[in-house]
Design a protein around this nucleic acid. Structure first.
Length: 878
DNA sequence: CAACACACGC
DNA sequence: GACGTACGTGTGTTGG
């Protein structure tokens, strides 16, 4: 017989927590749902993790409780519950009813007291008890049978208070928590305590004297005259405070433990409430994806399954959809096509299309306009069949991304849904996911693909209007759309890899890894899996007794910054760091790269995601060629394996110098920063001079390092905390650095203030070329969310404008290479640099035109500066 | 299979 | 006074 388990939830406290932890979500009926949603998340998690046999959610009853008789100002000065939260309580009660979970409130008592009373009863009956709240006061209930879980950050993370944990954390037993409260008070409940006594002092006193009463009986033995006087003076107040903080275990609760038995819930009940509230993600989790709704909305459509293509089907203006099921379109096969135009709606099988000369001619005709979804993907896959797609005049994927980069775009259906168009199923539902994925019969496939083309057809004009309204037409038509074709070229062409070089490096690294592994095992005194942070933690901190610097939620942290601090303590640390470094090279950059090299061409074909990042940057996958090592020499050598695809060619790399800071100088219109760049000064040294008020010759390398980190922080929008981490200084010091920086560059300071104000007014920020990022959280009452949104407001115009500039440079560069009839080709973009391969006899040309084009692609108040180099491998182009 | 910890680049 | 803090991608481990 397993033990009964009672879960007691502090309903008010969890609702508050959820409300402040989540942004103010609205459902389609205009009801705020963030607290309900957070509460639901918490509740389902508890049911799953704890599997209680009994459960109750306690709420506070009215305004006053028996505590007010003792102290009329109890909970005085507390802010009124925001109406946005109040309106959610009825739903939370409804939710509990649907879940068949008991809830209870009691006149004159707080939720705490109900919990205290029932937990005591349950303990006596031999139950295991779990209390869940956001209020640390509840920890006083912790006992051998009762664990108190307090939400930490957000709503999903909790900290569990067992008697042992309390002793470890505070150095006092659980039953002394109330004595501590008596001394230190509690400002949120307006419990006074003893003025001048905080947590530290309270704990010190209790450790020395025992209970509050013990302490007050021996005040004369307290060291420190001031403290003694305070205690003497506020003796009664301390006793009263302790009383107020004490949870009663004898409230006249009218429910019995039997009443709290939990028998599970009725799926339909919960489901219908979720639907009403618009909790779609939770509906999915219930495993009851809303099939009927999907079915309902799918109106019938008519279309033709084309056996033989005829000229009349291919017109001047078309919605054209190319289906490729695998996500890596470099290697995947085309599944089929659909076309919608004024002549009709068609499904065309892969075979029917590719055998047709008419189709090829139409696809390659720039005057036959096509609206597509993901032009790059369509283009690259058609090329495998010798067809060069031309005449794309609208890409639904890119338009959706430009209009709002925060929308997660999964497939045509997800885009359709966002614009209120529902006559289509998602690919996940239509094809199935994971192992269940399969291509259905032709009839069904045909219908699904035609539906996609219909979406293209019907959303196009709507999105064109939206782009126009946002003044983003130029960005869309003249930047992102042409860029997608350039990226298609880069991706299809690929980059040659020196397989032998890579394999050789792999062998060397394996030898070294074996050696280091032996050393580590010898130093540890046993063999273990070095790649397992868990096992490594046990060795370092339990067996070798090294000091614990940081913990993660699952155990000890063994990250590099922690290990570096331990380097002097044990020689095993150096070995582990080296092992990690080489292990990363081996698994990600040697084996990982070898896995994705095309065996025939010996090239890698990355895919640039052009519709993903919030800032407008590209990202790169399979392989990611934007994070090839460079910082450490050992890793940098990986670049020796990237070589030109033709004999006697070179790799030519050009990078913008300090593009983000130059952009900042421009948009902030900061006089000092502008003149620094006009004079082409070393910007980090210059910043050090300004921040530390010294002359150039007095800037030490440490000052420059600090200045560089601050510049870095400005560019990436990190917080004082982030800066303190990267410099190994305190948060306060980091904050002072940032302040001094802003004093040094008043234009920047003004910009930072203006942009945040602007973002609050408009709800979004823009870049040089009108890219947008919406920041709804900038008005959040949650400090963290608001701060993050504010930093994003400052940072996105900087990083996003830099992204705009290099994208434009890529387009200009492609045009210029064509004009020069050069053979050189662009291979990669890595955020602020462009990598080309070039015949040796074009090095001179590139050395002239690459900097010229990149530096002049836009005109800013400061010059743009480009450095370049070249060599037989990417490694040598440094 | 998802979540986590870690590490690489900009 | 605490909160939990740049963005991406890929790897290995772990536990359901």
């Amino acid at each position: 017989m397993t033990k009964n388990k009672l879960v007691l939830i502090d309903g008010n406290s969890i609702a508050y927590r959820a409300f402040f932890a989540l942004p103010l979500l609205n459902n389609d009926k205009g009801v705020h749902t963030n607290a309900i949603y957070g509460f639901t998340m918490m509740l389902t998690r508890i049911l799953e993790d704890e599997k209680p046999s009994h459960i109750l959610v306690a709420f506070d009853a009215g305004k006053t409780t028996f505590r007010h008789q003792t102290f009329s100002e109890y909970k005085g000065g507390r802010q009124k519950t925001p109406p946005e939260l109040s309106e959610q309580f009825p739903f939370i009660r409804e939710l509990l009813d649907r879940y068949s979970i008991s809830r209870y409130e009691l006149e004159n008592y707080e939720a705490d007291d109900i919990i205290g009373t029932l937990s005591l009863q349950a303990e006596k009956e031999g139950f295991e008890v779990k209390v869940i709240s956001g209020d640390k006061d509840l920890t006083q209930l912790s006992s051998e049978d009762t664990t108190v879980a307090i939400t930490k950050k957000g709503i999903t993370e909790i900290e569990e208070y067992t008697p042992a944990h309390i002793e470890e954390k505070y150095g006092i037993t659980a039953d002394r928590i109330i004595d501590m409260k008596g001394l230190m008070g509690d400002s949120s409940d307006n419990i006074p305590g003893v003025p001048g006594v905080g947590e530290k002092t309270a704990l010190k006193l209790l450790k020395e004297f025992g209970t509050l009463e013990d302490l007050l009986n021996s005040i004369d033995q307290v060291s420190g005259a001031k403290l003694k006087e305070k205690l003497e003076q506020h003796k009664d107040q301390a006793i009263m405070s302790k009383q107020l903080a004490t949870i009663t275990r004898e409230a006249p609760v009218e429910v019995s433990l039997q009443d709290l038995h939990y028998k599970g819930y009725e799926l339909d009940q919960v489901k219908s409430l979720y639907k009403e509230l618009g909790f779609n993600s939770l509906l999915d989790k219930l495993g009851v994806a809303d099939e009927d709704a999907e079915e309902e909305s799918l109106e019938e459509i008519s279309y033709t399954i084309v056996e033989k293509i005829e000229q009349a089907m291919l017109t001047d203006h078309n919605a054209f959809y190319v289906e490729i099921l695998e996500d890596n379109y470099h290697y995947a096969d085309i599944t089929g096509f659909s076309i919608v135009n004024e002549s009709g709606s068609y499904f065309i099988s892969k075979e029917a299309a590719l055998q047709s000369e008419l189709f090829k001619k139409w696809a390659e005709d720039p005057d036959k306009k096509k609206t597509v979804y993901d032009a790059k993907r369509s283009e690259v896959s058609l090329r495998h069949h010798g067809i060069h797609l031309k005449g794309v005049d609208f890409d639904l994927l890119l338009a959706t991304y430009i209009i709002d980069p925060s929308e997660t775009i999964e497939d045509v259906a997800s885009v359709a849904k966002k614009h209120g168009y529902s006559a289509i199923q998602s690919d996940e539902i239509f094809y199935g996911k994971g192992a269940k994925r399969k291509v259905p019969e032709k009839e069904q496939l045909a219908e699904h693909l035609v539906r996609k083309a219909l979406v293209l057809d019907s959303l196009k004009n709507q999105l064109i209007d939206e782009l126009e309204k946002n003044k983003q037409s130029d960005l869309f038509y003249n930047l992102e759309m042409p860029l997608s074709l350039i990226l298609a070229d880069m991706e299809s062409f690929g980059i040659k890899v020196d397989l032998n070089r890579l394999k050789e490096m792999g062998k060397e690294i394996i030898l070294k890894l074996d050696e280091i592994e032996k050393n580590i095992f010898a130093l540890a005194g046993e063999a273990f899996n070095i790649n397992s942070p868990k096992q490594l933690g046990v060795i370092l901190f339990d067996k070798l007794g090294l000091p614990v610097i940081k913990k993660t939620k699952t155990g000890y942290s063994t990250s590099a910054d922690v290990l570096e601090k331990l380097e002097a303590d044990h020689e095993i640390i150096r070995e582990i760091l080296h092992y990690r470094q080489l292990g990363k090279l081996q698994s990600t950059y040697i084996e990982g790269l070898l896995k994705v090299v095309n065996n025939e061409s010996e090239k890698v074909h990355t895919r640039f995601n052009q519709a993903l990042t919030q800032t407008g940057r590209l990202s790169s996958t399979d392989p990611n060629l934007q994070n090839i090592p460079i910082r450490l020499e050992e890793g940098r050598k990986i670049r020796q394996a990237f070589i030109p695809s033709e004999q006697d060619w070179v790799i030519f790399a050009a990078d913008y110098s300090q593009i983000e800071l130059r952009v900042l100088a421009h948009i902030a219109d900061d006089e000092k920063l502008i003149s620094a760049f006009r004079e082409d000064l070393d910007i980090h040294t210059k910043t050090a001079m300004e921040v530390f008020h010294v002359e150039a010759e007095d800037v030490t390398s440490n000052m420059r390092r600090h200045a560089k980190a601050v510049n870095f922080g400005i560019v990436y929008g990190i917080s004082d905390y982030g800066l303190s981490q990267s410099l190994g200084i305190t948060r306060k010091e980091a904050g002072q650095f940032i302040e001094r920086y802003l004093e040094s560059y008043p234009g920047v300071k003004q910009y930072m203030e203006d942009i945040v104000y602007d973002a609050k007014q408009k709800g979004f920020v823009t870049t040089l070329l009108q890219r947008r990022r919406y920041l709804p959280e900038i008005t959040s009452r949650n400090f963290n969310m608001r701060s993050f949104a504010e930093r994003t407001a400052m940072n996105t115009p900087i990083q996003g404008s830099a992204a705009d500039i290099i994208k434009k440079a890529m387009i200009d560069m492609a045009a210029r290479l064509e004009k020069e009839k050069a053979k050189s080709r662009l291979l990669l973009q890595v955020h602020d640099e462009l990598i080309f391969e070039a015949p040796k006899d074009e090095i001179e040309l590139l050395s002239k035109i690459v900097p010229e084009v990149m530096e002049n692609t836009v005109e800013l108040k400061v010059p743009l500066k480009v450095d370049f180099s070249f060599g037989p491998t990417w490694f040598d182009a440094k």
